[in-house]
């Protein structure tokens, strides 16, 4: 069941530890969000296109924000981003790359592919909480985005 009043955040992350840290960080921020988690790039596209296990709109509400890891099994985050930016229907969904890498080339590549922000994962839980709070403040409260399709 989904709560249509809560913003939907899609976390594309393969590491169970990072998934759990992000969940805990969301709880700590006290933001009321509907956090959805998928484990790899293909699952992310299934979710976005409502295919396979995500056929119903209930199981795959359109996200207000995507937190995308880069290094994922099967299909990596760059391919997911590239695919999203080729589809008009996903054009208004902000994508934040959330990764361990602060390699200059990765940052450049991320923005070339059309990410809205590139964030390096903090090394501590406190850092995670601050990062999530800042992201939610900015993308859910501050900025104005086009009305989501679907």
């Amino acid at each position: 069941m989904t709560d249509s009043t809560r913003p939907v955040i899609l976390l594309v992350e393969d590491s169970p530890a990072d998934q759990e840290l992000t969940r805990r960080a969301f709880l700590d921020t006290l933001f009321q969000v509907d956090l959805r988690v998928v484990n790899d790039g293909e699952e992310a596209l299934d979710y976005l296109h409502r295919r396979g296990a995500y056929r119903s709109s209930e199981s795959s509400p359109t996200p207000n924000l995507v937190l995308l890891d880069l290094n994922l099994p099967r299909m990596d985050g760059r391919e997911v981003l590239s695919h999203m930016r080729q589809e008009d229907v996903f054009a208004g969904i902000p994508v934040v790359i959330l990764t361990s890498s602060d390699d200059e080339r990765e940052v450049k590549k991320g923005y070339e592919l059309g990410c809205n922000s590139y964030v390096t994962k903090p090394t501590t839980f406190e850092g995670f909480v601050i990062m999530i709070r800042n992201l939610l403040d900015y993308w859910l409260d501050l900025v104005r985005l086009p009305t989501a399709a679907g």
Partner: peptide, 14 residues
């Protein structure tokens, strides 16, 4: 190595 280290550090703190 960063990812497991982050997990050890964060979950120890938690």
């Amino acid at each position: 190595l960063q990812e497991p280290l982050r997990a050890i550090s964060s979950f120890s703190g938690l």
